[in-house]
Design a protein around this nucleic acid. Structure first.
Lengths: 228, 228
DNA sequence: TTCATACTTCGATGCTAACCGAAGCATTTG
DNA sequence: CAAATGCTTCGGTTAGCATCGAAGTATGAA
Protein backbone atom coordinates (compact mmCIF):
# COMPACT_ATOMS: atom_id res chain seq x y z
CA UNK A 1 0.00 0.00 0.00
CA UNK A 2 2.33 2.66 1.17
CA UNK A 3 5.28 3.18 -1.07
CA UNK A 4 8.71 4.66 -0.66
CA UNK A 5 10.87 5.34 2.34
CA UNK A 6 9.56 6.20 5.77
CA UNK A 7 10.34 9.76 6.72
CA UNK A 8 8.31 9.64 9.92
CA UNK A 9 10.90 7.73 11.91
CA UNK A 10 13.64 10.23 11.19
CA UNK A 11 11.28 13.10 11.71
CA UNK A 12 10.32 11.74 15.10
CA UNK A 13 13.97 11.28 16.03
CA UNK A 14 14.75 14.88 15.17
CA UNK A 15 11.40 16.11 16.40
CA UNK A 16 12.14 15.90 20.09
CA UNK A 17 13.59 19.18 21.39
CA UNK A 18 16.18 17.48 23.58
CA UNK A 19 17.43 15.32 20.74
CA UNK A 20 17.38 18.23 18.32
CA UNK A 21 19.52 20.25 20.70
CA UNK A 22 22.00 17.41 20.99
CA UNK A 23 22.21 17.01 17.24
CA UNK A 24 22.67 20.74 16.80
CA UNK A 25 25.46 20.64 19.35
CA UNK A 26 27.10 17.79 17.46
CA UNK A 27 26.92 19.87 14.27
CA UNK A 28 29.81 21.74 15.84
CA UNK A 29 31.93 18.82 14.69
CA UNK A 30 33.44 17.97 18.05
CA UNK A 31 32.67 14.61 19.57
CA UNK A 32 30.98 15.21 22.91
CA UNK A 33 30.40 13.12 25.99
CA UNK A 34 26.99 12.13 27.27
CA UNK A 35 27.38 14.51 30.21
CA UNK A 36 28.16 17.45 27.95
CA UNK A 37 25.23 16.66 25.71
CA UNK A 38 22.90 16.35 28.68
CA UNK A 39 24.06 19.80 29.74
CA UNK A 40 23.39 21.46 26.41
CA UNK A 41 19.99 19.80 26.19
CA UNK A 42 19.11 20.75 29.73
CA UNK A 43 18.19 17.27 30.88
CA UNK A 44 19.57 14.74 33.32
CA UNK A 45 22.13 12.18 32.41
CA UNK A 46 19.68 9.29 32.47
CA UNK A 47 17.32 10.96 30.04
CA UNK A 48 20.19 11.92 27.78
CA UNK A 49 21.41 8.36 27.77
CA UNK A 50 18.03 7.17 26.64
CA UNK A 51 17.93 9.72 23.85
CA UNK A 52 21.43 8.91 22.73
CA UNK A 53 20.69 5.23 22.41
CA UNK A 54 17.68 6.05 20.28
CA UNK A 55 19.70 8.32 18.06
CA UNK A 56 22.31 5.61 17.69
CA UNK A 57 19.74 2.96 16.91
CA UNK A 58 18.40 5.31 14.22
CA UNK A 59 21.87 5.61 12.71
CA UNK A 60 22.15 9.34 13.28
CA UNK A 61 25.07 9.24 15.68
CA UNK A 62 27.86 6.87 16.58
CA UNK A 63 29.83 6.45 19.74
CA UNK A 64 33.46 5.82 20.46
CA UNK A 65 34.51 4.50 23.84
CA UNK A 66 37.65 6.04 25.21
CA UNK A 67 38.52 5.06 28.73
CA UNK A 68 35.57 5.81 30.91
CA UNK A 69 34.29 8.42 28.51
CA UNK A 70 32.01 7.80 25.60
CA UNK A 71 32.29 10.29 22.83
CA UNK A 72 29.32 10.80 20.58
CA UNK A 73 29.46 12.26 17.09
CA UNK A 74 27.27 12.47 14.01
CA UNK A 75 27.34 9.16 12.16
CA UNK A 76 28.58 10.54 8.85
CA UNK A 77 28.50 13.45 6.43
CA UNK A 78 24.99 12.60 5.28
CA UNK A 79 23.59 13.35 8.70
CA UNK A 80 25.33 16.70 8.71
CA UNK A 81 23.97 17.54 5.28
CA UNK A 82 20.46 16.58 6.28
CA UNK A 83 20.56 18.64 9.46
CA UNK A 84 21.94 21.65 7.64
CA UNK A 85 19.18 21.47 5.06
CA UNK A 86 16.62 21.19 7.83
CA UNK A 87 18.12 24.25 9.47
CA UNK A 88 17.92 26.11 6.20
CA UNK A 89 14.27 25.31 5.93
CA UNK A 90 13.59 26.18 9.54
CA UNK A 91 15.47 29.47 9.33
CA UNK A 92 13.59 30.44 6.21
CA UNK A 93 10.25 29.77 7.89
CA UNK A 94 11.15 31.71 11.00
CA UNK A 95 11.44 28.71 13.27
CA UNK A 96 14.07 30.13 15.55
CA UNK A 97 14.73 28.86 19.02
CA UNK A 98 15.65 32.05 20.70
CA UNK A 99 15.12 35.17 18.65
CA UNK A 100 18.38 35.61 16.80
CA UNK A 101 20.98 36.46 19.40
CA UNK A 102 24.06 38.63 19.37
CA UNK A 103 26.20 35.77 18.14
CA UNK A 104 24.04 35.38 15.09
CA UNK A 105 26.10 37.65 12.79
CA UNK A 106 29.26 35.73 13.62
CA UNK A 107 27.49 32.48 12.83
CA UNK A 108 26.30 33.79 9.51
CA UNK A 109 29.77 34.98 8.61
CA UNK A 110 31.64 31.74 9.26
CA UNK A 111 30.80 28.63 11.18
CA UNK A 112 31.51 24.95 11.36
CA UNK A 113 29.08 22.69 9.54
CA UNK A 114 29.87 19.34 11.11
CA UNK A 115 33.39 19.16 9.68
CA UNK A 116 33.67 21.87 7.06
CA UNK A 117 33.28 25.63 6.69
CA UNK A 118 29.84 27.20 6.27
CA UNK A 119 28.30 30.65 6.26
CA UNK A 120 29.24 33.57 4.05
CA UNK A 121 32.87 32.49 3.98
CA UNK A 122 31.98 28.91 3.11
CA UNK A 123 29.81 29.97 0.21
CA UNK A 124 32.40 32.47 -1.02
CA UNK A 125 35.06 29.81 -0.90
CA UNK A 126 33.12 27.42 -3.12
CA UNK A 127 32.22 30.23 -5.52
CA UNK A 128 35.85 31.16 -5.82
CA UNK A 129 37.02 27.57 -6.22
CA UNK A 130 34.62 27.12 -9.10
CA UNK A 131 35.51 30.46 -10.70
CA UNK A 132 39.21 29.64 -10.47
CA UNK A 133 38.48 26.23 -11.98
CA UNK A 134 39.89 24.37 -9.03
CA UNK A 135 36.60 22.55 -8.92
CA UNK A 136 34.47 21.74 -11.94
CA UNK A 137 30.89 20.94 -11.39
CA UNK A 138 27.48 20.50 -12.81
CA UNK A 139 24.61 20.04 -10.46
CA UNK A 140 25.85 18.25 -7.40
CA UNK A 141 28.63 16.43 -9.18
CA UNK A 142 31.72 18.34 -8.21
CA UNK A 143 35.14 17.14 -9.26
CA UNK A 144 38.60 18.42 -8.54
CA UNK A 145 40.37 19.51 -11.74
CA UNK A 146 43.96 18.64 -12.54
CA UNK A 147 45.17 22.19 -11.96
CA UNK A 148 43.02 22.32 -8.85
CA UNK A 149 44.67 19.23 -7.47
CA UNK A 150 48.05 20.87 -7.90
CA UNK A 151 46.91 24.00 -6.11
CA UNK A 152 45.55 22.04 -3.19
CA UNK A 153 48.74 20.01 -2.90
CA UNK A 154 50.73 23.24 -2.92
CA UNK A 155 48.63 24.38 0.02
CA UNK A 156 49.78 21.34 1.93
CA UNK A 157 46.77 19.10 1.51
CA UNK A 158 47.49 15.42 1.11
CA UNK A 159 45.20 14.54 -1.77
CA UNK A 160 46.21 10.92 -1.95
CA UNK A 161 44.88 10.46 1.57
CA UNK A 162 41.58 12.05 0.58
CA UNK A 163 41.09 9.97 -2.54
CA UNK A 164 42.02 6.73 -0.82
CA UNK A 165 38.96 6.95 1.39
CA UNK A 166 35.56 5.95 0.12
CA UNK A 167 34.11 9.35 1.04
CA UNK A 168 33.49 11.78 -1.80
CA UNK A 169 36.20 14.42 -2.09
CA UNK A 170 33.90 17.25 -3.16
CA UNK A 171 30.30 17.60 -2.19
CA UNK A 172 27.80 20.40 -1.94
CA UNK A 173 25.99 21.28 1.25
CA UNK A 174 23.12 23.73 1.34
CA UNK A 175 23.97 26.61 3.65
CA UNK A 176 21.12 27.53 5.97
CA UNK A 177 22.05 31.17 6.37
CA UNK A 178 23.04 31.89 2.79
CA UNK A 179 20.64 29.48 1.10
CA UNK A 180 23.36 28.61 -1.36
CA UNK A 181 25.87 25.79 -1.53
CA UNK A 182 29.18 25.53 0.19
CA UNK A 183 31.84 22.84 -0.10
CA UNK A 184 31.53 19.65 1.89
CA UNK A 185 33.26 16.30 1.47
CA UNK A 186 36.74 15.34 2.49
CA UNK A 187 38.25 18.32 0.68
CA UNK A 188 35.94 20.69 2.51
CA UNK A 189 36.99 19.10 5.76
CA UNK A 190 40.68 19.28 4.85
CA UNK A 191 40.43 22.98 4.01
CA UNK A 192 38.80 23.86 7.33
CA UNK A 193 41.42 21.83 9.16
CA UNK A 194 44.06 23.72 7.22
CA UNK A 195 42.71 27.11 8.30
CA UNK A 196 42.61 26.06 11.92
CA UNK A 197 46.07 24.42 11.80
CA UNK A 198 47.66 27.47 10.21
CA UNK A 199 46.15 29.67 12.88
CA UNK A 200 44.14 31.66 10.34
CA UNK A 201 40.97 30.97 12.24
CA UNK A 202 39.88 29.47 15.50
CA UNK A 203 36.69 28.03 16.83
CA UNK A 204 34.71 29.81 19.48
CA UNK A 205 34.01 27.77 22.56
CA UNK A 206 30.47 26.47 22.90
CA UNK A 207 29.46 27.75 19.49
CA UNK A 208 29.66 26.77 15.88
CA UNK A 209 31.12 30.18 15.07
CA UNK A 210 34.56 30.37 13.47
CA UNK A 211 36.54 33.55 14.02
CA UNK A 212 39.20 34.50 11.49
CA UNK A 213 42.31 36.34 12.63
CA UNK A 214 43.63 39.41 10.86
CA UNK A 215 46.19 37.48 8.84
CA UNK A 216 43.64 34.76 8.37
CA UNK A 217 41.27 37.21 6.68
CA UNK A 218 44.04 38.36 4.35
CA UNK A 219 45.19 34.88 3.44
CA UNK A 220 41.63 33.76 2.89
CA UNK A 221 40.91 36.72 0.60
CA UNK A 222 44.13 36.07 -1.31
CA UNK A 223 43.41 32.36 -1.67
CA UNK A 224 39.78 32.70 -2.61
CA UNK A 225 39.33 35.96 -4.52
CA UNK A 226 35.85 37.17 -5.33
CA UNK A 227 35.23 36.93 -9.03
CA UNK A 228 34.46 40.33 -10.52
CA UNK B 1 21.91 30.27 24.90
CA UNK B 2 20.78 28.11 22.05
CA UNK B 3 21.76 29.36 18.67
CA UNK B 4 20.46 28.83 15.19
CA UNK B 5 17.17 27.67 13.80
CA UNK B 6 14.88 25.19 15.48
CA UNK B 7 14.75 21.91 13.63
CA UNK B 8 12.69 20.18 16.31
CA UNK B 9 9.39 21.77 15.31
CA UNK B 10 9.66 20.63 11.71
CA UNK B 11 10.93 17.26 12.78
CA UNK B 12 7.95 16.83 15.06
CA UNK B 13 5.58 17.87 12.29
CA UNK B 14 7.03 15.28 9.93
CA UNK B 15 7.60 12.78 12.73
CA UNK B 16 4.01 11.70 13.11
CA UNK B 17 3.20 8.73 10.85
CA UNK B 18 -0.19 10.05 9.82
CA UNK B 19 1.23 13.43 8.86
CA UNK B 20 4.18 11.84 7.09
CA UNK B 21 1.82 9.73 5.01
CA UNK B 22 -0.18 12.77 4.06
CA UNK B 23 2.92 14.68 3.05
CA UNK B 24 4.17 11.73 1.03
CA UNK B 25 0.82 11.58 -0.73
CA UNK B 26 1.07 15.28 -1.51
CA UNK B 27 4.51 14.68 -3.01
CA UNK B 28 2.55 13.23 -5.90
CA UNK B 29 1.91 16.82 -6.89
CA UNK B 30 -1.86 16.65 -7.00
CA UNK B 31 -3.83 18.77 -4.58
CA UNK B 32 -5.96 16.44 -2.47
CA UNK B 33 -9.02 16.88 -0.30
CA UNK B 34 -9.11 16.27 3.42
CA UNK B 35 -11.17 13.14 2.89
CA UNK B 36 -8.68 11.70 0.42
CA UNK B 37 -5.80 12.46 2.72
CA UNK B 38 -7.59 10.90 5.66
CA UNK B 39 -8.01 7.79 3.55
CA UNK B 40 -4.38 7.46 2.58
CA UNK B 41 -3.30 8.05 6.16
CA UNK B 42 -5.80 5.55 7.47
CA UNK B 43 -7.44 7.87 10.00
CA UNK B 44 -10.82 9.48 10.46
CA UNK B 45 -11.70 12.82 9.01
CA UNK B 46 -11.60 14.62 12.35
CA UNK B 47 -8.09 13.46 13.09
CA UNK B 48 -6.97 14.35 9.59
CA UNK B 49 -8.43 17.81 9.97
CA UNK B 50 -6.46 18.34 13.13
CA UNK B 51 -3.25 17.21 11.45
CA UNK B 52 -3.86 19.36 8.41
CA UNK B 53 -4.32 22.49 10.46
CA UNK B 54 -1.04 21.76 12.22
CA UNK B 55 0.77 21.25 8.95
CA UNK B 56 -0.69 24.47 7.64
CA UNK B 57 0.28 26.38 10.76
CA UNK B 58 3.79 25.05 10.29
CA UNK B 59 3.86 26.35 6.74
CA UNK B 60 4.29 22.95 5.15
CA UNK B 61 1.03 22.90 3.24
CA UNK B 62 -1.52 25.38 1.98
CA UNK B 63 -5.18 25.01 1.23
CA UNK B 64 -7.40 26.32 -1.49
CA UNK B 65 -11.14 26.41 -1.01
CA UNK B 66 -13.17 25.40 -3.99
CA UNK B 67 -16.87 25.07 -3.45
CA UNK B 68 -17.40 22.71 -0.61
CA UNK B 69 -14.06 21.05 -1.17
CA UNK B 70 -10.79 22.11 0.33
CA UNK B 71 -7.78 21.13 -1.65
CA UNK B 72 -4.49 20.75 0.16
CA UNK B 73 -1.07 20.92 -1.46
CA UNK B 74 2.53 21.34 -0.42
CA UNK B 75 3.21 24.98 0.37
CA UNK B 76 6.03 25.46 -2.15
CA UNK B 77 9.01 23.84 -3.87
CA UNK B 78 11.13 24.07 -0.75
CA UNK B 79 8.88 21.67 1.08
CA UNK B 80 9.14 19.22 -1.79
CA UNK B 81 12.91 19.47 -1.82
CA UNK B 82 13.10 18.93 1.91
CA UNK B 83 10.84 15.90 1.83
CA UNK B 84 12.76 14.38 -1.05
CA UNK B 85 16.05 14.78 0.77
CA UNK B 86 14.52 13.23 3.86
CA UNK B 87 13.35 10.31 1.76
CA UNK B 88 16.83 9.93 0.33
CA UNK B 89 18.26 9.74 3.80
CA UNK B 90 15.57 7.34 4.98
CA UNK B 91 15.95 5.07 1.97
CA UNK B 92 19.70 4.94 2.43
CA UNK B 93 19.31 3.91 6.06
CA UNK B 94 16.77 1.26 5.28
CA UNK B 95 13.82 3.05 6.84
CA UNK B 96 11.16 1.63 4.56
CA UNK B 97 7.51 1.55 5.39
CA UNK B 98 6.53 -1.65 3.80
CA UNK B 99 9.38 -3.76 2.54
CA UNK B 100 9.91 -2.49 -0.96
CA UNK B 101 6.89 -3.56 -2.96
CA UNK B 102 6.39 -4.58 -6.56
CA UNK B 103 5.84 -1.00 -7.62
CA UNK B 104 9.26 -0.04 -6.32
CA UNK B 105 11.13 -0.57 -9.63
CA UNK B 106 8.64 1.65 -11.45
CA UNK B 107 9.11 4.34 -8.81
CA UNK B 108 12.86 4.18 -9.15
CA UNK B 109 12.66 4.44 -12.92
CA UNK B 110 10.47 7.52 -13.13
CA UNK B 111 8.22 9.25 -10.65
CA UNK B 112 6.75 12.61 -9.79
CA UNK B 113 8.65 14.65 -7.24
CA UNK B 114 6.02 17.18 -6.22
CA UNK B 115 5.88 18.85 -9.62
CA UNK B 116 8.84 17.60 -11.62
CA UNK B 117 10.37 14.35 -12.83
CA UNK B 118 12.51 12.21 -10.52
CA UNK B 119 14.06 8.77 -10.52
CA UNK B 120 16.48 7.33 -13.06
CA UNK B 121 14.84 9.29 -15.86
CA UNK B 122 14.95 12.54 -13.90
CA UNK B 123 18.63 12.17 -13.15
CA UNK B 124 19.41 11.18 -16.72
CA UNK B 125 17.55 14.19 -18.00
CA UNK B 126 19.57 16.63 -15.94
CA UNK B 127 22.82 14.87 -16.86
CA UNK B 128 21.95 15.17 -20.50
CA UNK B 129 20.84 18.79 -20.23
CA UNK B 130 24.18 19.67 -18.68
CA UNK B 131 26.18 17.62 -21.18
CA UNK B 132 24.34 19.27 -24.07
CA UNK B 133 24.98 22.65 -22.50
CA UNK B 134 21.33 23.49 -22.24
CA UNK B 135 21.98 24.15 -18.59
CA UNK B 136 25.22 25.47 -17.18
CA UNK B 137 25.88 24.99 -13.56
CA UNK B 138 28.31 24.95 -10.75
CA UNK B 139 27.20 23.64 -7.42
CA UNK B 140 23.55 24.40 -7.03
CA UNK B 141 23.55 27.45 -9.24
CA UNK B 142 22.04 26.24 -12.46
CA UNK B 143 21.32 28.62 -15.28
CA UNK B 144 19.73 28.16 -18.66
CA UNK B 145 22.16 28.96 -21.47
CA UNK B 146 21.27 31.03 -24.50
CA UNK B 147 21.28 28.01 -26.80
CA UNK B 148 19.40 26.06 -24.15
CA UNK B 149 16.68 28.67 -24.05
CA UNK B 150 16.23 28.32 -27.80
CA UNK B 151 15.98 24.56 -27.56
CA UNK B 152 13.37 24.77 -24.84
CA UNK B 153 11.33 27.27 -26.78
CA UNK B 154 11.50 25.00 -29.82
CA UNK B 155 10.04 22.26 -27.64
CA UNK B 156 7.08 24.47 -26.98
CA UNK B 157 7.95 25.76 -23.53
CA UNK B 158 6.97 29.36 -22.85
CA UNK B 159 10.13 30.65 -21.21
CA UNK B 160 8.88 34.17 -20.72
CA UNK B 161 6.15 32.80 -18.47
CA UNK B 162 8.73 30.91 -16.43
CA UNK B 163 11.06 33.84 -15.98
CA UNK B 164 8.27 36.24 -15.08
CA UNK B 165 7.55 34.31 -11.91
CA UNK B 166 9.65 34.79 -8.84
CA UNK B 167 10.41 31.06 -8.66
CA UNK B 168 13.86 29.93 -9.80
CA UNK B 169 13.82 28.46 -13.29
CA UNK B 170 16.45 25.80 -12.63
CA UNK B 171 17.06 24.11 -9.35
CA UNK B 172 18.59 20.87 -8.19
CA UNK B 173 16.71 18.34 -6.11
CA UNK B 174 18.44 15.38 -4.52
CA UNK B 175 16.90 12.17 -5.79
CA UNK B 176 16.20 9.63 -3.06
CA UNK B 177 16.52 6.55 -5.21
CA UNK B 178 19.48 7.62 -7.30
CA UNK B 179 21.20 9.73 -4.66
CA UNK B 180 22.10 12.24 -7.35
CA UNK B 181 20.49 15.45 -8.50
CA UNK B 182 17.63 15.90 -10.86
CA UNK B 183 16.11 19.09 -12.24
CA UNK B 184 13.58 21.02 -10.19
CA UNK B 185 12.35 24.60 -10.50
CA UNK B 186 9.84 25.98 -12.95
CA UNK B 187 11.69 24.49 -15.92
CA UNK B 188 11.65 21.05 -14.32
CA UNK B 189 7.94 21.44 -13.80
CA UNK B 190 7.38 22.64 -17.37
CA UNK B 191 9.26 19.66 -18.80
CA UNK B 192 7.21 17.14 -16.86
CA UNK B 193 4.02 18.89 -17.91
CA UNK B 194 5.25 18.72 -21.49
CA UNK B 195 5.78 14.96 -21.33
CA UNK B 196 2.33 14.42 -19.92
CA UNK B 197 0.66 16.82 -22.35
CA UNK B 198 2.31 15.22 -25.35
CA UNK B 199 1.16 11.82 -24.17
CA UNK B 200 4.71 10.55 -23.86
CA UNK B 201 4.05 9.52 -20.29
CA UNK B 202 1.16 9.26 -17.91
CA UNK B 203 0.80 9.13 -14.17
CA UNK B 204 -0.27 5.99 -12.42
CA UNK B 205 -3.28 6.37 -10.22
CA UNK B 206 -2.59 6.41 -6.50
CA UNK B 207 1.14 6.35 -6.99
CA UNK B 208 3.98 8.69 -7.71
CA UNK B 209 5.09 6.43 -10.54
CA UNK B 210 5.25 7.82 -14.07
CA UNK B 211 4.92 5.36 -16.91
CA UNK B 212 6.39 6.25 -20.30
CA UNK B 213 4.72 5.03 -23.46
CA UNK B 214 6.64 3.40 -26.30
CA UNK B 215 6.90 6.58 -28.33
CA UNK B 216 7.52 8.48 -25.13
CA UNK B 217 10.59 6.35 -24.43
CA UNK B 218 11.92 7.03 -27.92
CA UNK B 219 11.30 10.76 -27.81
CA UNK B 220 12.83 11.00 -24.38
CA UNK B 221 15.94 9.11 -25.49
CA UNK B 222 16.24 11.31 -28.56
CA UNK B 223 15.76 14.50 -26.59
CA UNK B 224 18.09 13.62 -23.73
CA UNK B 225 20.84 11.39 -25.10
CA UNK B 226 23.23 9.72 -22.72
CA UNK B 227 26.67 11.24 -23.04
CA UNK B 228 29.19 8.64 -24.10
C1' DT C 1 -36.61 24.89 2.69
C1' DT C 2 -34.80 20.49 3.42
C1' DC C 3 -31.37 17.22 2.78
C1' DA C 4 -26.68 15.83 1.73
C1' DT C 5 -21.85 16.45 1.52
C1' DA C 6 -17.42 18.38 3.22
C1' DC C 7 -15.11 19.75 6.83
C1' DT C 8 -14.18 21.79 11.63
C1' DT C 9 -14.55 22.07 16.60
C1' DC C 10 -15.40 20.13 21.12
C1' DG C 11 -14.84 16.76 24.60
C1' DA C 12 -13.28 12.57 26.39
C1' DT C 13 -10.17 8.64 26.27
C1' DG C 14 -6.16 6.13 26.08
C1' DC C 15 -1.50 5.36 24.81
C1' DT C 16 3.05 6.70 24.23
C1' DA C 17 7.22 8.57 25.58
C1' DA C 18 9.83 12.00 28.04
C1' DC C 19 11.41 12.50 32.44
C1' DC C 20 13.79 11.67 36.85
C1' DG C 21 15.18 8.90 41.24
C1' DA C 22 17.59 5.03 42.48
C1' DA C 23 20.30 1.27 41.66
C1' DG C 24 23.64 -1.20 38.73
C1' DC C 25 27.80 -1.75 35.74
C1' DA C 26 32.36 -0.38 34.00
C1' DT C 27 36.66 2.03 34.28
C1' DT C 28 40.10 4.72 36.43
C1' DT C 29 42.46 6.47 40.48
C1' DG C 30 44.41 6.32 45.05
C1' DC D 1 41.28 -3.20 47.62
C1' DA D 2 38.06 0.91 48.05
C1' DA D 3 36.45 5.25 46.31
C1' DA D 4 35.21 8.12 42.50
C1' DT D 5 33.68 9.03 37.93
C1' DG D 6 30.97 8.16 33.69
C1' DC D 7 27.27 6.11 31.97
C1' DT D 8 23.27 2.64 31.60
C1' DT D 9 19.15 0.27 33.15
C1' DC D 10 14.92 -0.13 35.79
C1' DG D 11 10.61 1.52 37.66
C1' DG D 12 7.09 4.68 38.22
C1' DT D 13 5.02 9.16 37.30
C1' DT D 14 3.28 12.58 34.39
C1' DA D 15 2.17 15.23 30.44
C1' DG D 16 1.18 15.61 25.85
C1' DC D 17 -1.12 14.32 21.91
C1' DA D 18 -3.16 11.27 18.59
C1' DT D 19 -7.46 9.36 18.19
C1' DC D 20 -12.45 9.12 17.64
C1' DG D 21 -17.63 10.13 18.77
C1' DA D 22 -20.69 13.68 18.59
C1' DA D 23 -22.14 18.08 17.59
C1' DG D 24 -21.57 22.33 14.84
C1' DT D 25 -20.68 25.17 10.42
C1' DA D 26 -20.59 25.88 5.48
C1' DT D 27 -21.62 24.90 0.73
C1' DG D 28 -24.28 22.76 -2.81
C1' DA D 29 -28.29 20.03 -4.53
C1' DA D 30 -33.22 18.82 -4.64
Amino acid sequence: MKEGPDIAQIGALIGDPARANMLTALMGGNALTATELAGTAGITLQTASSHLSKLEAGGLICQRKQGRHRYFALADDDVGLLLESLMGFAAHRGFTRHRTGPRDPALRKARVCYNHLAGDYGVRMLDSLVAEEVIAGAGDDLTLTQSGAEKMTALGIDLSALTRSRRPVCRTCLDWSERRSHLSGSLGQALLTLFLDKGWARRETDSRAVRFTGTGEKEFAKLFPLSA
